[in-house]
């Protein structure tokens, strides 16, 4: 690990200002991803701004009937919050499907959104990687790419975003609240938060230099049946090959999002509107224009089949719910 200076920020603007003014500075909260990358010298910040004292560790009801989740709320606490368990079950389920108990105790809401890809070539500093060293090339294209993205890819990068939580956040139309060094705040819809890889896969979000995430807003509860289904190489503590997040209403309408297939959670309004027509139609719309590799073409079939399983589960749950009410 390279040497760095360390600062505990006492206000969000102080943190944002320090991060903007100090070249190579990074915020640190849980540190579970950043320290891993620093040990491998994939991340080499010269200055760390610790944001743990900023008080963004509450989950509050919003006037609009939703929730505001502080950026520092730990993954364990977000998954276990009674309001999240009752009204945003897909978010609890997605969080609980990710990482380990130890990691979830440290990992934060904002850090989860900003975690880096687990592409093996991004992690291997002996290999070219456009995300790690811009312009050096992509080793995954033509390499071992079983885990990689099948859609939204570019000629420069086929890495996936590894988060489960972000898939549920995308499904729920969450908003990402930020503050900048000049004190200006904004809410970025999560649909606009991640940048497609294009020629600059090292720039992953629309956040500006020094811009600090302060919280995530959730719109009012959707009702319906909430499902998060994750398919992976082992039953626990592994990243998704494919995951499906869904909220399905009693009338069969609803929304779906995929994880493990792209640089960001993958959702399309046109696919949501086809939910009543079944998994084949939904998958065809979601994955139209997919560019899988030889190694990961199975993800197209897997996504459709996982969608089918999720829609069946949801229909059963709706029926069960109705029979309980009757």
């Amino acid at each position: 690990m390279r040497a760095f200076t360390y600062q505990r920020a006492t206000s969000a603007v102080e943190a944002a200002t320090a991060a903007q003014r100090t070249p190579g500075a990074r915020f640190i909260a849980g540190g579970t991803n950043l320290l891993d990358l620093m040990k491998l010298e994939i991340e080499t910040p010269g200055h760390l701004v610790d944001v743990n004292d900023l008080g963004f560790d509450r989950i509050d009801a919003t006037p609009g009937g939703g929730l505001r989740v502080g950026a520092l709320v730990r993954n364990t606490d977000l998954a276990a919050d009674p309001r999240v368990r009752r009204d945003y079950g897909v978010l609890s389920r997605a969080l609980l499907a990710g990482a380990s108990g130890q990691l979830r105790n440290k990992a934060t809401t904002a850090g989860n959104l900003l975690q880096r890809t687990r592409c093996a070539y991004f992690y291997d500093t002996n290999q070219p990687c456009n995300k790690r060293v811009p312009g050096s090339g992509c080793s995954a294209i033509g390499g071992a790419s079983r885990q990689h993205a099948v859609i939204g890819v570019s000629a420069a990068c086929i890495a996936t975003h590894p988060s489960d939580m972000a898939v549920a956040m995308r499904l729920l139309d969450a908003g990402v609240e930020t503050v900048r060094a000049n004190g200006a705040t904004r809410v970025i819809p999560i649909a606009d938060f991640y940048r497609p890889p294009g020629d600059t896969p090292h720039i992953e979000t629309v956040l500006e230099a020094g811009e600090l995430i302060t919280g995530v807003t959730l719109p009012p509860p959707l009702g319906g049946v909430h499902v998060y289904r994750k398919v992976r190489d082992r039953a626990s503590y592994a990243f998704a090959l494919v995951s499906v997040a869904a909220v399905v209403q009693p009338d069969g309408s609803g929304r779906v999002a995929l994880g493990g297939v792209a640089h960001q959670p993958w959702r399309m309004a046109a696919a949501d509107s086809q939910l009543a027509q079944g998994a084949t139609a939904v998958a065809a719309t979601l994955l139209a224009g997919a560019r899988p590799t030889h190694d990961n073409a199975f993800k197209i079939t897997l996504a459709e089949r996982t969608l089918a399983a999720v829609l069946l589960d949801a229909r059963d749950d709706v029926r069960e719910h109705r029979s309980k009410q009757a």
């Binding site: 360390y6 505990r8 640190i28 540190g31």
Partner: peptide
């Protein structure tokens, strides 16, 4: 794995200076 303020964490992914 250790217990930090009663909760289990990975001590390897945590900086000492962050635990005043």
């Amino acid at each position: 794995t250790i217990l930090l303020d009663g909760r289990r964490i990975n001590a390897c992914l945590s900086l000492a200076v962050m635990h005043e």
